[in-house]
Amino acid sequence: MLIIKNLYVKIKNNLIIKKLNLKINKGEIHILMGPNGSGKSSLSYTITRKVNYNIYKGKIKFNNKLINKLNTYEVSKLGIFLSFQYPIEIYGITMFNFLKNLFKKNKNKYIKYIFKLCNKLDINKKYLNRYFNYGFSGGEKKKNEILQMLILKPKFSILDEIDSGLDIDSLKIIFNNIKYYIKKKKDSSFLIITHNTNIINYIKPNFIHILYNGKIIKTGNLHLLNKINKYGYKNIINF
């Protein structure tokens, strides 16, 4: 589904990603970990083609289509979704109006569908009349991100620190919904960026990658998480 080959990314003459290779097949869940400032979020921004994140060398292919020269809108139209670490607030536009515009088909049935999803995510329906993310707590904002994902139904989703700032109950709700989405749409794949090693309690990934200094230095399975827990990033990097 997503193939990244020999990727070099520059922001104003600073190389932030160096020789990165990654392959994510259909239906796979990948977890991306690494110390702070290693380039995890930058990678997500490059895949979604944020301005100023210039691809200096290399290729990014999604469903055999080169997305190097596409813009963010075109990439999202292909079916790539990015949930933000710090979702923005929009004053003046209500949640309901915003979500309504995300529907592409079945515009008549959206009200029922939004209410159904709100029940699943344990979002109070009163929030739909509030301004988009305005005055929401961290957890509510993250739930809103998943709500948008469930409406947009992307083929590939990047979840940037979706578990940060959440209590245990909310964590369970969010990952249950992700599981529900995977069950419903088996082709969909995920790249989850996280610092939380307990994530295996909620979801079972296929691969775990460690990113350091703009490079993937290690790829493994669940055992790698145990190592990180035991030795920390520093020892793994030096090893």
């Binding site: 979604t48 944020k50 536009i93 947009l152």
Partner: peptide, 25 residues
Amino acid sequence: IIFYLQTRSINTKNSKLIFFLSILL
């Protein structure tokens, strides 16, 4: 904000419109 809205498959023109409307409202 424009980048955020674009990732929600809203095109550049409409995302600018949403941004200004939110201020003008």
